[in-house]
């Protein structure tokens, strides 16, 4: 039981970062970014390249990967989404699918299809009261908690954080209050890309690095964000933890390859019963 908890927590923590990233960009830009999975993948591969090809320490490589994807996300916005701000969310959605396909295949082009892993020293798992916790899980726990606390502090207590929440809350009023939307959007993309890349690094640490890794996480990421009510970034974190647990518990009576189906069933049930999310209050939906 305790082991289940630890594994569920790990799954949930990994999901928390991209779910937060997705909800963040949705809250400010009002469109669901399907390319989030490919940001995860690109982050993992850039980190792998810095770690293995350049032989840099793992944590340095992870920072390089995150910064690279943060810049990538900002550039893609400047190249693609910025020209479509006035279009409907659906058109942006389809455009983000195009971005996802292109990015994933750029990765395939350079890295091929075979799975890889990071160059990190292997350590023996530790035992706390009969529960096995391996080094990777500890790294995941510390990294995710660190990142979440940092984001939360920025959100809560800085001018920039207020600006992001203000644009998400009421974009028209934000512009009247002197907030330059374009700059906020750039920051949001940088944050969204950086967090997704970090998640890619952690997934690579937990399992392996392959071109479709982000794709495999797409459905759980969306489910976690919807659990939180899609437009509330911090609730998405809670959604991720709930989903992580649910997936882990489901392995008690379902084969592990059906985790995706668990995510889908949870999402479907939620959309039919509580589309405003597990924690949120009801908001007006068309």
């Amino acid at each position: 039981m305790g082991q289940l908890l630890v594994n569920g927590l790990t799954t949930g923590l990994i999901l928390a970062l991209p779910a937060l990233a997705l909800a963040l960009s949705f809250s400010v830009l009002r469109f669901a970014n399907y390319a989030i999975g490919s940001y995860v993948t690109v982050g993992a591969f850039v980190t792998w390249w810095a770690n293995v090809a350049l032989a840099l320490p793992f944590w340095v490589a992870a920072i390089i990967g995150s910064v690279a994807v943060a810049s990538l996300a900002v550039s893609i916005d400047a190249l693609v989404y910025r020209h479509m701000r006035e279009r409907s969310g659906l058109t942006l959605l389809v455009a983000s699918m195009g971005v996802a396909i292109a990015l994933e295949n750029v990765v395939r082009l350079f890295a091929g299809n075979s799975p890889r892993s990071f160059d990190v020293p292997v350590a023996r798992p530790q035992r706390f009261f009969d529960i096995r916790v391996n080094q990777e899980q500890l790294i995941i726990l510390i990294t995710v908690l660190g990142a979440l606390i940092l984001v939360w502090l920025v959100f809560r207590f800085t001018r920039l954080g207020r600006a992001m929440r203000a644009v998400a809350d009421n974009a028209a009023l934000a512009s009247v209050r002197g907030i330059a939307r374009g700059r906020v959007i750039a920051v949001v993309w940088a944050l969204s890309g950086g967090l997704s890349a970090l998640a890619g690094v952690l997934i690579g640490l937990d399992t392996s690095i392959e071109p479709q890794m982000g794709w495999n996480y797409l459905l759980p990421i969306f489910t976690a964000a919807i659990l939180g009510g899609i437009a509330s970034p911090m609730a998405a974190v809670a959604g991720a933890l709930v989903l992580g647990m649910a997936e882990e518990v489901s392995t008690l009576f379902l084969p592990p390859h059906y985790r995706m189906i668990v995510a889908f069933v949870i999402m479907a049930a939620l959309l039919m019963l509580r589309p405003w999310g597990l924690f949120g209050t009801k908001w007006v939906q068309r």
Partner: peptide, 19 residues
């Protein structure tokens, strides 16, 4: 839509001068 509904009153007032 004259306030930021999901932010506290104090935050609303801060946003008056932040930028």
């Amino acid at each position: 839509a004259n306030v930021f509904p999901n932010m506290t009153v104090l935050e609303n007032l801060r946003l008056g001068v932040d930028f």
